[in-house]
Amino acid sequence: MAEQRREALKIIGAVGSTCAFPFSADELYGQHAHGADAAPAAVPAHPRFFSAAEFETVSRLADLIIPATSTPGALAAGVPAYIDFTATNNAQSGKLLREGIAWLDRAASKQGKARFVDLEESAQVALLDPLCKAADKAPAFTGPRGGGLKARPAWKAPIEVRFFRAVKSLAADGFFTSKHGLVDTLRYSGNTVRGEFPECIHEH
């Protein structure tokens, strides 16, 4: 067991992600690897919940919500696969997403296109804009309350608005926890070894 542990700790990452403490009391304090450089979890090649057509729509929505800018966007970050993963594991969420995609396709058919993905980008954005505005008005806190508190009034919104809110939430969660989101876009720089914590020397 002790041998195994030592073996595991010999794995040393790139410079800057490993710390070395000058302590002899316990050799295990000496070196330990920080895992920030480990590869991201693999993205499956095919969706498990969505059909190919549905997945195409989810991908288009993710791209519209978080596009590539000076940094990669939702598509490069594997957000559609993350949304598929969530839908696979949450029947309620899966049902809402599926109904929402069907709603978008019906809206597209009123404009003479078979599916949402067939619309011009400007028409797609025009369709989503009012949904987003309505979804942004949703209360931050929903759900039942306990402990003798008065119940909150339920958030009543049409299916397409609840759908947009769900897709945007999943896209945000999926993107900003991805390497492209957290490290490339937000420039997360933690999970390191620092000899001391710096004093604030700025004017506030």
Partner: peptide
């Protein structure tokens, strides 16, 4: 301790 969310499929 030193994992980041993108190391896991469910983040």
């Amino acid at each position: 301790t030193h994992a980041l969310p993108f190391h896991f499929p469910n983040r």
